[in-house]
């Protein structure tokens, strides 16, 4: 992989990612994850570029982007808190917690629903910047939101 991707324009970066995955059609999810890792979302311009690299149709690439919850079509908020809303976290108040936290958030922060982080014995749980936090309450969530925002 090229050492410093930042210096390349977006189109080149995307092509490099595809090449890094041998332009293999079955690696589409991995490629989209990689693009989102440096771009934070999948821009519309990416569909045709990836389609050309992988010998797929634009519709097929668009179909995959829109199918999976992880892939974003628009730039997200600066900080994203993925708060679990599955049954175990529900049993420990995660629905109310989400409702309470969502009040008075500025546009820099977004609370998203995620379904299960596998931390069901330490509910409520959230995923923030690749880290999972357990036994959360409103105070701790506010600290997470406030920290490094």
């Amino acid at each position: 992989m090229a050492a410093n991707l930042d210096i390349y324009p977006l189109e080149s970066k995307i092509k490099l990612v595809c090449a890094d995955h041998n332009n293999a059609a079955d690696m589409l999810l991995e490629i989209l994850h990689a693009v989102q890792a440096f771009n934070r979302y999948i821009p519309e311009s990416a569909y045709q570029i990836i389609a050309d690299c992988l010998n797929l149709s634009r519709a097929e690439v668009y179909g995959v982007v829109t199918f999976y919850h992880d892939f974003r079509q628009k730039p997200p908020a600066k900080k994203i808190i993925k708060l679990c809303q599955s049954e175990a976290c529900q049993s420990m108040g995660s629905v109310q917690l989400k409702a309470d936290i969502e009040k008075g958030l500025n546009s820099d922060v977004a609370i998203e629903t995620i379904y299960c982080l596998g931390n069901c014995a330490l509910a409520p749980s959230a995923l923030v910047d690749g880290q999972i936090y357990g036994r959360l309450d409103a105070d701790q969530l506010n600290t997470l939101i406030g920290g490094a925002a």
């Binding site: 599955s86 175990a88 379904y115 299960c116 596998g118 931390n119 069901c120």
Partner: peptide, 11 residues
């Protein structure tokens, strides 16, 4: 792909 809420033995 252990997606069921309440499950974590695979993990």
């Amino acid at each position: 792909d252990e997606g069921d809420g309440g499950t974590f033995s695979d993990r």
